[in-house]
Amino acid sequence: MTYTAWIILTGVLVGVTCGMTGALLILRRMAMIADAISHTVLLGIVGAFFVTQSLNGIPMLIGAAIVGMLTAFFVQLLDSSGVQSGAAIGVVFTSLFALGVVLLSFIGDSVHLDVQHALMGEIAFVPWDTLILGGKEAGPVAVWMLSGVFLLNLAIILIFYKEFKISTFDPQMAISIGVPVVFIHYLLMSMVSFSTVASFDSVGAILVVAMLIVPGATAYLLTDRFGLMIILSAVIGAVSALLGYGFAVVMDVSIAGSMATATGFLFGLAFFFSPSHGLIAKWVRRKNMQKNLNEEARVS
């Protein structure tokens, strides 16, 4: 595969993996918890580095999962002690993220990891960091990690589809019939953490947040079916990656930033032009209703 193809594949994988997870987050009103986790995961990565002294994929995933869970747990803890949820999220994520950034600045320039990188990633370097299997190059590490997390997320959603659906729509009923809603909650949190850390290296925290939240919100404006919303969200994530890459190449600007911008562009399209929930469709419906009312008034 060519250099460009690897980059595009990476972007599309980020879009699909984060997109399908994000649809669930939107429905569960946890967009900002996802935002928090994708920031605090930095602490997990730095922590894993301090323990293992290397930027190895597996310890990074574990560190990220731990800190991701901790974030969700702390937010829940503050929430249940009476702190309003927005403020709880704000305190937890800024604290853990700040800690991550400060620790990161102690590591120094010796390793390929800095604050800039953590925020924006460097997708352009992805194709050069390849996995060596049996002495042969077997594609970029990032693509392998992302593919793994993608398959994991897909499997989790397929296995727990019913449980996700009911615990999202009606958690009380879910508990009453014995669905382990707390387990489902932390399962989703770990999906978010894994998606974040796998995407982190290539696209950075900011694009992860965008890919987790915006495609899901866009899909929410386009469909009234749960399953379709997850699929659409993944597709929109992928399309954003493609559009963003194209724009970045033409304008010679940040690839991750462009992809985030592209998610916003697609969201804007859906916001105005969605046939079911778009601003214009709603406006036309209201006009028609008014017209009908007027005609009825004239007839009677």
Partner: peptide, 27 residues
Amino acid sequence: HSRIKTDASIGVVLSVFFGIGIVLLTY
């Protein structure tokens, strides 16, 4: 003007604006 709830709306605006900021910064 849409069915999007507040937290998602905040998330959308935050990440897209910041993404645009990064694009402009590299520009």
